[in-house]
Write a protein that binds this DNA or RNA. Structure first.
Lengths: 218, 218
DNA sequence: TAGATTGTTAATCGATTAACAATC
DNA sequence: TAGATTGTTAATCGATTAACAATC
């Protein structure tokens, strides 16, 4: 078995396919073609087949894919066949929203099990059914729930400190919502999500369009 | 002037450079090299120069870039030389968080000027200093503030309806946080932000790493 | 001038698309 | 069998990287 390097874009799409399949399954749909999936999520049909081919042969020629089977395969590939307890740092607005977002009906197995903040005004408060803890309690919560993934929802200034603390406490992966790029050791799986960047790509494209109209190009 | 197609990845990075430059400027740093920027945001130096080259020549050979000038250029390119009033639909947790996020100190000119929901329990409530309005009031708010960009923060089921309404009311761009891909006309600038996808890429990589350890590969 | 760093071209790398044989 | 759709190879396309001439 030659393990080919899987493009990150493929993983990204796989996650989207997976959720699309969940919706089809809810609707009671049994079989789906690469064409259907492609149309449903806005990519090309060969793209869908190529992406799946990195992981195996899941379909039947002339027929398509079994929705439920393919859904389970994709979940398995993404590591979502088991629950993922999350540790969240930052009990501000974004932190509160993320904690309820990841607890939502569509949570795919993610759930925040501990919220942390070093603001004394926030420690001890309730966010949903969770208490806000001081940073010192991290090891206890990590141990109790077997947490491996930390989510950072603090301002840019303190994000690096939080990351360092998470690394020190043995977390394996960090999702950072602060608009800075952080330094973490190579063995940490790390990702930045930047909510502003997406808006700025939008405004860039609005500007682009206007200048195209100006010059008469399309 | 030949307008070369700019890769989306370039715009993405430009937004990151721009924010990095803001931080340098706050610190009073006058000059920066492509090397410094590259290191600060985690890309390669030629990448930085290539990205900038799509838009002009901003540096001085042998010297580098003037921080303040380059910051202003990047803001201009991204369309951030003017304020962007936003319309937000969905007064749930995510909506509330986004509205305060985009009002934050680092808001880059974005500000939510109207929050909408069709839940009668939410209409009339305050979110920060904003009232939650019923959908019928969209045209009024759009007109009053000259809104062009709408943000969708409702559950997957109702997201398409919201998008349709935004299009009908003449918005030019839509940022969708619901985990579905929506159908919008070609003339609408559209983007999906999926908060789960990012976590799932993390868990995929954790799984990948484990299997690599298992097989002794690196 | 010598040293530094940009802007840009050419080479490389990787991802997407097109096409089709395999096969249900 | 005929029609449909997968899995996969080859061709294309696009983005990143390396290298270096230009120039401050």
């Amino acid at each position: 078995m030659k393990t080919q390097r899987v493009p990150e874009a493929t993983i990204n799409r796989l996650s989207v396919y997976s959720r699309f399949l969940e919706r089809l399954d809810e609707k009671g749909i049994i079989t789906v073609s690469s064409n259907d999936i492609a149309e449903g999520v806005g990519v090309s049909p060969p793209q869908v087949r190529k992406d799946l081919a990195y992981f195996g042969e899941f379909g039947t020629r002339g027929v398509g894919y079994n929705v439920q089977d393919l859904m389970r395969y994709t979940l398995k590939i993404l590591g979502l066949n088991e629950p993922w307890p999350l540790l969240l740092v930052g009990a501000g607005n974004l932190g509160i929203a993320l904690s309820s977002y990841y607890r939502g009906f569509n949570n795919r197995g993610f759930s925040v099990v501990g919220i942390f903040d070093n603001d004394l005004n926030k420690i001890g408060r309730k966010v949903g059914n969770l208490d806000v803890y001081p940073p010192e309690m991290m090891p206890e919560i990590i141990n109790k729930h077997g947490v491996r993934v930390g989510v950072i929802a603090v301002p840019a200034k303190t994000a690096q400190d939080v990351a360092d603390l998470m690394v020190k406490n043995g977390l394996d992966a960090i999702l950072n919502f602060a608009p800075v790029s952080l330094n973490v050791p190579d063995h940490i799986v790390y990702r930045n999500v930047d909510l502003s960047v997406n808006l700025e790509i939008l405004t860039f494209n609005l500007g682009l369009r206007e200048s195209q109209i100006d010059t008469g190009n399309l």
